[in-house]
């Protein structure tokens, strides 16, 4: 014990350069990547930046010998479907890895099925297996509230929750747990499981995207797939977004991705039917407004 203290004193430096740490750790890269690659989500970005600076300052304090307890990093992401929770979780895993809070920085994404067993005695090994896989990285539990089913008192979810809580507390240095799901259900989940509430330090809300942001996302997606919009199709897309939002099962960016996938399908059909001679790359990558306007959303039906 005495040796350890001595070592720490020897290692401690007299000053740290936060700006330099910020650059050299690669955190700056991730934050700017976060800014550029994710459209909208301003409150989320602000929270992540705040968290990143807290962690950076904590590391700096540690270097100066100002020892504090290792911070609780477990998080909860609440928001509607398709608001980028998984994408942000991936970035967080990378961020924590660069800051030196997790050793490997991989993301293990699971749902209730992966944690809860089917018969007595099946749950504990299953949950432990998943937790072991996630050690050194981030465990992302999507729709975490399904773990807790109060209507069935024999449900094995409770067992998974207990193991989860225990590992979240005892192996804090080994893994970070991110719970994700819809806002109202998450709130209810935390209410009925106070153990989780107190062990999760960061609650981040993901707002819905505005129509303009969704249009921007659509353009980025299309460009990413090496397709092109023209003026007509951009206008059609904007109208599509407005109509789609009013219909049931609207899932923000995911709905847009699906819409684009179907537009590609129609575009391929159109290109195939209309091509007689040789065609160029331009023709193959152009999405016209008819490709979008054929969607059932425009005729009032649900586009699944």
């Amino acid at each position: 014990m005495a040796n350890e203290v001595e070592e720490k004193v020897v290692k401690a430096v007299s000053e740290v350069n936060l700006k330099e740490d910020f650059q050299s750790s690669g955190v700056a890269d991730i934050l700017s990547e976060l800014d550029n690659s994710l459209i909208g989500l301003e409150p989320v970005k602000t929270r992540i930046k705040e968290t990143a600076s807290l962690l950076l300052v904590d590391k700096a304090r540690e270097k100066l010998g100002l020892v504090s307890e290792s911070p609780t990093l477990h998080m909860s992401f609440s928001g509607n479907p398709g608001t980028g929770k998984t994408t942000v979780a991936l970035k967080i895993a990378d961020l924590l890895h660069r800051l030196g809070y997790v050793r490997k920085g991989h993301l293990v994404s699971v749902t209730r099925d992966d944690l809860v067993g089917q018969y007595i005695g099946h749950t504990a090994p299953k949950t432990k297996e998943v937790l072991k896989k996630a050690m050194g990285g981030v465990l992302f539990i999507d729709e975490a509230y399904y773990l807790y089913r109060p209507e069935n008192e024999r449900d094995y979810g409770q067992e998974a929750i207990e193991i989860l809580l225990q590992v979240m507390e005892n192996n804090r240095d080994d893994l970070v747990v991110v719970l994700a799901g819809y806002k109202d259900k998450m709130d209810k989940f935390f209410e009925s499981n106070p153990g989780f509430r107190s062990r999760v330090a960061h609650h981040i809300d993901f707002p819905d995207y505005s129509n303009d942001e969704l249009l921007e996302i659509a353009e980025v997606m299309v460009a990413g797939m090496n397709y092109k919009f023209n003026k007509g199709s951009i206008k059609a897309m904007a109208e599509y977004i407005e109509l789609r939002r009013k219909q049931p099962h609207f899932a923000n960016a995911r709905s847009i991705r699906n819409a684009i996938d179907r537009a590609r399908l129609r575009q391929a059909n159109r290109v195939f039917n209309n091509s007689d001679g040789p065609i160029g790359a331009n023709f193959l990558s152009q999405i016209e407004d008819v490709d979008i306007r054929q969607s059932r959303v425009f005729s009032g039906g649900i586009d699944k």
Partner: peptide, 8 residues
């Protein structure tokens, strides 16, 4: 077989 970190 599939634990990337020794903590497991």
């Amino acid at each position: 077989f599939d634990n990337p970190d020794a903590a497991a």
